[in-house]
Simulated scan of single mutants.
Amino acid sequence: MTIAEGDTLPQAKFKEKTADGPIEVTTDELFKGKKVVLFAVPGAFTPTCSLNHLPGYLENRDALLERGVDEIAVVAVNDFFVMGAWAEKTGGTGKIRFLSDWDASFTKAIGLELDASGAGLGIRSKRYSMLVEDGVVKSLNIEESPGQATVSGAAAMLERL
């Protein structure tokens, strides 16, 4: 079952690469008492993710924070080394949290997995964005095509805020 607006996010653990090594980040640590924009991509370094989706959030970071967002995070079914390298390559380090859902457990728990085996990628996440307040999904925006980043993009999120 796919998560919906008004639902509480399930408990999950992500990995995040830091200067001191990998850390574990729980959903409670990420969302409790905060207003967070979380967006997901099918894969770090993939064309739409790197050329459209992520850059929009980096460019609109300050505008999102000015509208009351405490934190912005991107999640992908990639390992934390890949997510860390993507953060460094795109200039996103320290601006957006780059979270690894390495085993797709979070993605599956919210019902947003994408079988990209036909493209040689295996199980990945659908492209989406959500506004989460204190662990509750306030806005959920799922792309119909993984190659598009319109309803889940930063401009669309700004409109919802």
Results as ranks from 00 to 15, higher is better:
residue 19 A to M: 04
residue 7 D to S: 07
residue 12 A to E: 03
residue 43 G to K: 01
residue 112 L to P: 10
residue 13 K to N: 12
residue 129 S to K: 06
residue 105 S to M: 06
residue 86 W to L: 09
residue 56 G to A: 10
residue 65 L to Q: 10
residue 115 D to Q: 11
residue 148 Q to F: 14
residue 52 N to E: 14
residue 107 T to H: 10
residue 58 L to R: 10
residue 63 A to L: 09
residue 110 I to W: 09
residue 78 N to R: 11
residue 143 E to A: 04
residue 110 I to G: 07
residue 141 N to D: 13
residue 108 K to M: 07
residue 59 E to I: 02
residue 73 A to T: 12
residue 90 T to R: 14
residue 94 G to D: 04
residue 46 T to V: 01
residue 149 A to F: 00
residue 88 E to W: 00
residue 91 G to F: 03
residue 124 R to I: 02
residue 76 A to W: 02
residue 40 A to Q: 02
residue 58 L to H: 05
residue 84 G to S: 13
residue 53 H to M: 01
residue 79 D to F: 00
residue 110 I to P: 06
residue 147 G to V: 04
residue 14 F to W: 10
residue 33 G to E: 00
residue 60 N to D: 09
residue 96 I to D: 10
residue 20 D to V: 11
residue 91 G to V: 05
residue 102 W to R: 06
residue 97 R to P: 01
residue 49 C to I: 02
residue 100 S to N: 02
residue 69 V to G: 05
residue 100 S to P: 02
residue 139 S to G: 08
residue 124 R to A: 03
residue 148 Q to E: 15
residue 27 T to G: 14
residue 122 G to F: 02
residue 27 T to C: 14
residue 108 K to T: 07
residue 42 P to M: 00
residue 130 M to E: 11
residue 9 L to P: 04
residue 13 K to R: 13
residue 64 L to G: 07
residue 13 K to V: 14
residue 118 G to S: 11
residue 38 L to T: 07
residue 45 F to K: 06
residue 144 E to N: 13
residue 77 V to Y: 08
residue 16 E to R: 10
residue 130 M to Q: 08
residue 148 Q to P: 08
residue 32 K to N: 06
residue 18 T to V: 06
residue 31 F to D: 05
residue 143 E to V: 00
residue 128 Y to R: 05
residue 114 L to H: 12
residue 78 N to E: 09
residue 95 K to D: 03
residue 50 S to A: 15
residue 43 G to R: 01
residue 60 N to C: 01
residue 81 F to I: 15
residue 12 A to S: 06
residue 22 P to N: 15
residue 25 V to Y: 03
residue 85 A to H: 05
residue 88 E to P: 00
residue 14 F to E: 04
residue 148 Q to H: 13
residue 15 K to S: 15
residue 66 E to D: 14
residue 48 T to C: 06
residue 73 A to L: 11
residue 82 V to T: 15
residue 138 K to D: 13
residue 81 F to T: 14
residue 139 S to W: 00
residue 100 S to E: 08
residue 112 L to V: 01
residue 146 P to Q: 12
residue 80 F to N: 14
residue 129 S to G: 10
residue 82 V to C: 14
residue 146 P to L: 00
residue 143 E to Q: 05
residue 136 V to F: 01
residue 133 E to M: 09
residue 139 S to E: 13
residue 70 D to R: 07
residue 65 L to P: 07
residue 139 S to R: 14
residue 77 V to H: 10
residue 11 Q to M: 13
residue 61 R to Q: 03
residue 135 G to E: 05
residue 133 E to R: 12
residue 106 F to Y: 07
residue 44 A to D: 12
residue 32 K to G: 03
residue 77 V to R: 11
residue 81 F to L: 15
residue 9 L to R: 04
residue 54 L to T: 13
residue 142 I to W: 12
residue 7 D to T: 01
residue 44 A to K: 08
residue 78 N to H: 04
residue 48 T to N: 13
residue 104 A to Y: 03
residue 44 A to M: 10
residue 37 V to G: 00
